[in-house]
Amino acid sequence: MVSEGPAQRQSAESAYHFAQAALAKGHEVIRVFFYHDGVHVGARASTPPQDERNIGAQWSALAAEQGLDLVVCVAAAARRGVLDEEAGRRLDQAPAPGSLLPGFRAAGLGQLIESGIDADRLIVF
């Protein structure tokens, strides 16, 4: 789980490096859940300066390469304006609402709890 926003803390970066190291060792990352301010990572509209790394875009690329399931909490995202109105209405059904980066989907907190039940380890960044 990524719990903090890319502009406030390093969470999304640390989780990214950890996921890469875990995948390189042959482990499976069944899901990455973005909660609290972490939902900002999946926001399509965020554009950091060109000489800075865009961690959201990097997660997108890693998801495409490794088939990762990137889930933005729908309630937390709606509260912070990360999901647009239309996406908010469609909630769980949308594979990639327009306001999210490719590879991200919006879903409920149940996805986090389900991961906690199914995975051998749930790690919060």
């Binding site: 909660y35 609290h36 309630a75 937390a76 509260r79 409920g108 907190l109 149940g110 986090l112 709890i113 389900e114 906690g116 039940i117």
Partner: peptide
């Protein structure tokens, strides 16, 4: 902050999953 309140939402979801 909304941290604690969002934490409670997660707690209630764990309860809904009968854990």
């Amino acid at each position: 902050s909304v941290q604690a309140q969002e934490g409670l939402d997660a707690l209630l979801m764990a309860v809904a999953f009968e854990q």
